[in-house]
Design a protein around this nucleic acid. Structure first.
Lengths: 197, 197
DNA sequence: GACGGTTCTTATCATACATCAATGGCCGCC
DNA sequence: GGCGGCCATTGATGTATGATAAGAACCGTC
């Protein structure tokens, strides 16, 4: 199956030759998920990091009142996994689901170690990914602590203009930590104050 | 200066001999901060990871309305740093401040690389720290998205019973993302329902 | 032991957001 | 082309938490 994005992602981020990548990537199965299908469910053990070749995924949890809370969206060229489960080997508390028909590369621990052996600066690369993740989470916490629904929405538009157009509003609301109704009103407010798109 | 905690932390987490540690640690300056002093301020570049030998630190931001939001507390045996600033080399958006008189080990990039060279499984150790950090942040986001003030407070008590007793309530409130007044009410509520401590 | 600062509590009022319920648009499907 | 499911909108009402203000408790300090 075609894994163009995965390959270019690697060549861009690692100092590595085309041929070598291709031979490495052979070790990674690719899988197709159709809209609505699950890549991971609560209480399962997460065994992979998923690289999104095409399509769109979401990672979310369901709280004790039955409400969904989206932790992250993953469009093409993004990684997603439950590190808590995969790294610490615990049952996951999250779901990962396809929001569009998606092609996904499945990366397991063995592959990581293989690449780490073959490619010297892979650990650095991995480190960068982790740091990026942390930065991202930290920003979000800060936002949840300090910003109103409207401010968070505006920030979301800034950061993920593409995703905004690809998912139902309900899900944006769930990401922002508000109800769909509230988001609708926020949008109305903004529209009335002559805010476009 | 005495760095007992730092040493034992290392011996416990890395496969390494006492003598070797001591010689390594010589490279790390230790500094004392008295209550209220700053280790890092907004817009400064964070050059160190801080290991708290004794005392208590907090990391917080100030939003555009002038309100403080505590991102983390760091009691003895904890690391704290602004990874966003130190790793990506950007001006920090956070403050790090001593809440008690504290002894702190200053770890810089050079030290990290030195240790990485000398000690084979240091990268793994470092990885574990990063993953732990991520897990922690993720849990917090989930909580902010799904739990009420009361639920968050109860969870805080569970996780940080010691810190609860060491910092003013104002700061607990700031960590939870509510006002001190609200926290006071939550506590009153709990007390009336016969909840102890 | 009085003083001034900080912290905590309490009361009243204000507000952002949730909840509940109804409606209408959109779209795929038989 | 009508039917049913999903989604967005809107209105009425409820509730948790914020804002403001004032007083009480605590605490180190001179």
């Amino acid at each position: 199956m075609d894994t163009t994005n995965f390959k270019t992602y690697f060549t861009l981020n690692l100092d590595i030759e085309e041929a070598e990548i291709s031979s490495l990537i052979e070790n990674c199965p690719t899988k197709t998920f159709s809209k609505g299908q699950f890549l991971l469910r609560e209480n399962e053990f997460c065994k992979h990091t998923f690289f999104v070749e095409s399509g769109l995924l979401r990672q979310y949890s369901i709280d004790n009142k039955g409400k969904e809370h989206i932790l992250s969206f993953a469009p093409e060229n993004w990684f997603v996994t439950d590190r808590e489960s995969s790294y610490f080997n615990r049952p996951s508390s999250y779901y990962i689901q396809a929001l569009e028909d998606s092609k996904v590369v499945l990366i397991d621990e063995g592959f990581m170690q293989l690449v780490a052996q073959k490619i010297p600066n892979f650990t650095d690369f991995n480190n960068r990914l982790l740091h990026n993740h942390i930065r991202h989470l930290q920003t979000r916490i800060n936002l949840l602590l300090s910003a109103t629904a409207e401010e968070r929405y505006l920030q979301f538009i800034e950061m993920y203009p593409d995703i905004l157009l690809r998912v139902p509003q309900t899900m944006v609301a769930s990401y922002l930590g508000i109800t769909p109704e509230s988001l609708s009103r926020v949008r109305k407010e903004l529209a009335q104050r002559n805010f476009r798109r």
